[in-house]
Design a binder for these strands. Structure first.
Lengths: 145, 145
DNA sequence: CAGTATCCTTAGGGATACTG
DNA sequence: CAGTATCCCTAAGGATACTG
């Protein structure tokens, strides 16, 4: 019985850390979730087009990530037929990730400060590390100027 | 003065989330830190060769990650000249990441359970989700059978 | 407006061999 | 024993064009 146990190796594909790399810790998901959460706090939904006003992400990558986040139960997608817009909301389940994201951001923020690495001010606003300035926070990245 | 603020875009390279993707959330670092922490709890150091008994990682990738972790102040490297071995320890600073890693693992573990995704038992032992079995936990991955 | 579809680039990691 | 050095490969993301 010990033998049948021993012929197993660690399978990273079935481990929660690796799983979380797919579910949450990729290049854009923390920012997408943060953007939705930020709008939610302000009492408004997040439209598909709104992400581009905050994040230099392409449509392909955004759509991919939104689809995965929806399939994983972290966000909800609502189509408004009258004007062809689509709203995104954080689910309650998805919001259970916010404390983790906060802890990660905070650790990183302090480490960067400690090491004198410059920190992006927009991200700081989203996280309350800098006074919020609406005129900057929704300034489009594209069609700038 | 508002103008000079507005002509800035979000620079992901200077944001803590992205920074943490390099510092901590890559394929192997959570496991490396976990392995050292596990040995530390058991009162012993972690030798370079010991990682290969737990993780299917290559020497190149392990060395790379250990070097970064050391440069980032998360682990310490001690050479024992008498027998040419090298020990690795978690620094106090590095151990401040453990609560975050635990929270990430736990969220992922519960999510996988909820969705009936099989979870690797070795990782569960390292995290106390399964009774520890020393005979399995240090079974080499390489030269198996 | 909110997406697909295609093509391309690159960074991270894997395999293997070699070294002080 | 504890690493480098090379070469290779894939998966994630970027650029651009098109669509209901």
């Amino acid at each position: 019985m010990q033998q049948e146990m021993q012929d197993q190796e660690f399978n990273i594909k079935q481990d929660p850390y690796n799983y979380m790399l797919r579910v949450l810790f990729n290049r854009w998901k923390p920012y997408i979730i943060r953007a939705i959460s930020f709008d939610q706090d302000a009492g408004r939904p997040t439209y598909y087009s709104a992400f581009f006003k905050q994040l230099p992400i392409t449509q392909k990558v955004l759509s991919q990530n939104l689809k995965e986040l929806e399939q994983d139960g972290l966000i909800e997608r609502h189509v408004l037929p009258e004007n062809l817009r689509v709203e995104y909301h954080l689910t309650e389940y998805g919001s259970t990730l916010l404390p983790i994201l906060d802890a990660v951001y905070d650790w990183g923020w302090h480490d960067m400060k400690k090491k004198d690495i410059p920190i992006d001010p927009l991200g700081e606003m989203w996280h309350g590390y800098r006074k919020q300035d609406a005129s900057r926070m929704h300034q489009p990245f594209k069609n700038k100027q």
